[in-house]
Design a protein around this nucleic acid. Structure first.
Lengths: 112, 112
DNA sequence: CAACCATGACCTAATTATAGGTCATTAGAG
DNA sequence: CTCTAATGACCTATAATTAGGTCATGGTTG
């Protein structure tokens, strides 16, 4: 049975996930960790770590980010402390934005 | 039946995923897009987009990155073109690294 | 060169995410 | 204030990922 292509992704998304996987692999090897090491520390299986490094789109984002953290990758910030700051910054930003979006407005804009 | 906590994640991973969700939501609202709009363009469901924005760890990384791209978020680079460059850079870097990691070495280093 | 071991691929069972529907709530526009 | 619609939550069937095992391959060390 041939494996089906379940969903279509944009090139950008595919490359971003692939890049994350490669960065994870590079970081892991630089730290002299085996796939099994990382899997154990992440509480996942060896196969999953392998698929994450390969850049498969179906892996859960939680597992991928956890593995990234374990090999020392900091996705948004160099310092974990600043991540919390960014979180509240985004929350504050959200508070200033409308809490729901009216399509009516958009529709008029796209209507020509 | 109470919902079980399936897996444990580090604080950093949880905050990183939550931050990504908030950034997506902010970007979406700034672009006057509804959750339904984004879901349709991503080829997913409204509920999934909602869970991604909420920062749930179980969402697939492909869906999350696709949604991020649709609302205009660029995770690694401002320019999509440079993403491809980074991809080959990481591949080159990988070529210089050992292709398998010996645990024996690590064990000695950690052994004191 | 020879032995060891990390890796990558595959398989099956079990668990989980997802789609798509409905419904209550609430924010925004008139 | 009132009406409309976006949002968030929940539900069920389906489809997917995941864990955990095994196996072949190839890199690394002695």
């Amino acid at each position: 049975m041939a494996k089906l292509a379940y969903r279509s992704y944009s090139r950008y998304s595919r490359e971003a996930v692939a890049l994350l996987g490669l960065m994870i692999r590079n970081a892991r090897i630089e730290r002299d960790m085996t796939v099994a090491d990382v899997a154990e520390r992440a509480g996942t299986s060896r196969g999953l770590v392998h698929r994450i490094e390969k850049g498969e789109m179906g892996s859960s984002i939680g597992a991928a980010f956890e593995v990234a953290a374990i090999v020392g990758l900091r996705l948004f910030e160099a310092e974990p402390a600043t991540l919390t700051r960014h979180l509240s910054m985004e929350r504050d930003k959200l508070a200033l934005l409308p809490q729901s979006v009216r399509t009516g407005t958009t529709k008029v804009k796209d209507d020509f």
